[in-house]
């Protein structure tokens, strides 16, 4: 009887000690990390385009954290899906076509002579990248434009085009042909 008692006692003491050690360790060596939502948000392209069905990247990040699919972001494309899959520890999937297709980076361009100054696009822009006032011509701040497409629909005179983002020499890649070339001799 006493053997059982002592063995139980020993186990209990051991459990207490290990519990205390583990508890101490979990506090002492706590890994400070961003909340999951912020980590996901950091991977999203921040176009705020809403193609995923949520009003912006942060809401989609919250949805992913709550178990939504990771393949609803066309601007981010396969690269973003892969990063999200790595973060969430799931298999990467192909982009959900229902939300659009991956495209070259674009920016909005307002045909200024056709603009009637209705400010509708300004209200639609999620990143305040359109400049203008009522009854005055509007224009897009190219550097701030995320290419989200949201200003195109509200425009009553359809004067906004999505044009491919300008490329520059700084990031020229050696296999990109920028000028027409041919061999003559």
């Amino acid at each position: 009887m006493s053997i059982i008692f002592y063995s139980l006692l020993a186990l209990a003491v051991l459990a207490l000690i290990f519990g205390a050690v583990l508890g101490f360790a979990s506090i002492k060596y706590k890994v400070e990390s961003d909340p999951l939502v912020d980590q996901i948000d950091a991977l999203l392209p921040q176009t705020q385009c809403g193609q995923c069905g949520y009003p912006g990247c942060k809401p989609y990040a919250e949805a992913i954290a709550n178990g939504d699919e990771i393949n609803k972001c066309p601007p981010g494309g396969e690269a973003t899906i892969k990063n999200l899959a790595d973060l969430m520890g799931v298999e990467p999937k192909s982009l959900d076509e229902a939300h659009g297709e991956e495209d070259v980076k674009k920016v909005a361009y307002i045909r200024e002579d056709e603009c009637i100054g209705c400010t509708k696009c300004i209200q639609a822009c999620p990143v305040d990248a359109i400049l203008g006032a009522s009854k005055l011509m509007h224009t897009v701040i190219v550097d701030e434009c995320t290419g989200c497409d949201l200003c195109v629909d509200p425009c009553p005179v359809d004067c906004i085009d999505m044009v491919p983002a300008p490329s520059n020499n700084k990031y020229w890649k050696w296999d990109q042909v920028l000028i027409p070339t041919k061999t003559i001799n």
């Binding site: 948000d41 921040q46 999620p126 305040d128 990248a129 701030e144 990031y171």
Partner: peptide
């Protein structure tokens, strides 16, 4: 650069 731009866009979006 894209990342920096995305960060800027995120801040602008949140500020808006």
């Amino acid at each position: 650069e894209d990342k920096a731009k995305a960060e800027k866009a995120r801040i602008r979006f949140e500020q808006r």
